[in-house]
Amino acid sequence: MSHDPEALRDLLGPDAMLCRRAITGEHGVSLPPFTDHHVHLHLIDETQLATGGIAGVVDLGGDPVALARRENHRIPRVAYAGAFLTAPGGYPVGRPWAPPQITREILDPSTHPGVPGGAATAVDEQASCGASVIKASLNETAGPVLDGATLGAIVTVARERGLPVVAHAEGDGMPQLALDAGVDVLAHTPFTEFVGRAFTAHAVKAGQIWISTLAIHRDDPQAAEFARVNLAGFAAAGGRVLYGTDLGNGDQPVGVNPDEVAALDGAGVRGAALIAALTDPWPTADAPSGVSTFVPGPPPTRLDEVAEWLRGATVVPSEELVHDDH
C-alpha cells in the first residue's frame, strides 16, 4: 500500500497499522480491539457484536447471578456491574425492560457486611458475582434517588473492594451529587443541564471518566445539545472519554454505532482521541486478547473521513493480519 504509515498513526493513534488479511487478501488497517463501555446484554443479541466491530463490552445493569454464570472465554469479552444499586422505588425499579433481578434497593447506608438492604451488602453481592465495577442509579427525573450519605457509603465500600463506581446521573444536580460523592465514572455524558466550566474542571481534576452515549438523544434536540456541549468541554479540558452507546436502549445497531461515532467526532473527540475512546480497555487493564479491529479498504487521510470510515470495522483474529508497514 502506498499510504504513509506515520501519517496514519498521526491520524489514528500509535497502534494503527497498515495490513492485509492473510486468508482473504483484503488490505486495510488494524487497530486495537474496540469496546462498547455501556451495554445491557439482556436486551440485545450479543452474537452480532464482533461482526460489527465490537470485541468487548461493559454491561452496566444486569442480573449478577446470570452474568456470573455465563461463559466468558470468547468474544465479546464481558465486564459487568451486576445490578443497579438504587433508592427504594428508584430508577429503574418497575420499568418494563428492567426485571427485578437487575435492581437492588438500598435501604440502609451501612458499610458493615451482611446488613439487610445495606450498602455494603449490595456491593459485596455484586463483587462476589464477579463485578468489575459497581453501578449506582441517580435518576431524579424518575423517582427517589440515593442520598449523599448512602451514595458515599457505596463509593467507600466499592473502593475498599478495589472497584470503581459508575453512576447514571440524570436530573437537576445529579452530576454534582455524583462528583461530590467521589463517583469514578458517569454512565452518560450529562444531558439534562449544561454543567459549566467549574464543574468540568473539578471532574477532570478528580480523574472522573465520562461514557459518551450521545446518540441516544437523537429524538431530543435539547438533551443532545446539552450532552454535546458538556462532552466537548470535558474533552477539551483533558477529561477521559469512553465510547459507549447504552446498547439495548432503543433501536441501535449491534456493533460500532455510526451515529455515536459521528456524535463524538462532532463534540471534538476526533481522530486519535476517537480511537482512544473506542479502544480504552476500562474497567480492565488490558484489551481483549487474540483479536484486533480490522477496517478494510483505503485508510482515511483526513480527520473528516475517520468517523465514516469506522463503519467498516470488524473483529478478526490478530494472527490473520499481516502488517505491511514494518
Rank of each mutant, 00 (worst) to 15 (best):
A22S: 15
L146Q: 12
V123I: 12
V295Y: 00
G94I: 09
V316A: 10
P5Y: 09
A22I: 13
I154H: 08
I209D: 03
A127L: 11
S128R: 15
P298H: 06
S132V: 02
G162W: 01
D286M: 10
A169G: 03
R218P: 03
L18E: 02
I216H: 05
T111H: 08
L242V: 03
A79T: 05
I75T: 15
L43H: 14
A232W: 08
G152K: 12
D246M: 01
R302C: 03
T213N: 12
T192E: 09
R240P: 01
T279M: 02
V269T: 14
L177S: 14
G255W: 06
R104F: 12
F194K: 08
T51L: 11
P190V: 07
A167D: 00
G114M: 11
Q208A: 13
P283M: 09
A267M: 12
S318Q: 14
A7P: 05
L18H: 06
A50I: 02
C129Y: 11
G239K: 08
N72I: 01
V306K: 09
L146F: 12
I154M: 08
P253Q: 07
D324H: 14
V306T: 09
G255N: 08
G233Q: 15
A277F: 02
L278E: 06
V78D: 01
A203K: 00
D45H: 10
G250A: 05
T279L: 03
E125W: 06
G239M: 02
N139R: 09
L67V: 07
G56H: 01
R240A: 08
D10M: 04
P92V: 05
G196Y: 07
E319G: 05
T245Q: 14
W97G: 02
V195Q: 07
I216P: 00
G250N: 03
G173F: 11
I275A: 04
A68L: 05
V315A: 04
A178P: 08
G89W: 08
V29H: 11
G162Q: 04
P317C: 13
T86M: 02
I44E: 09
Q126L: 11
L18S: 07
D147I: 09
T284M: 14
L179G: 04
P92S: 02
A167S: 12
A203L: 00
S2K: 13
V306F: 10
E140I: 08
P100M: 00
V316K: 10
A206R: 11
A313I: 04
G266A: 14
S318L: 13
Y243C: 00
L264Y: 00
G52T: 06
P164H: 00
E125A: 13
A224E: 15
D280V: 08
G118C: 10
T189H: 00
L310S: 03
A66H: 11
C129E: 03
V322E: 15
P113V: 11
L163K: 07
A83F: 00
E319F: 13
E170T: 14
P92C: 06
D259C: 02
C129H: 15
V195H: 01
A313V: 06
Q208N: 07
D10V: 04
L186F: 14
L310P: 06
A127H: 10
A187W: 01
R311E: 12
M1G: 13
S289K: 14
A307K: 06
W309Y: 14
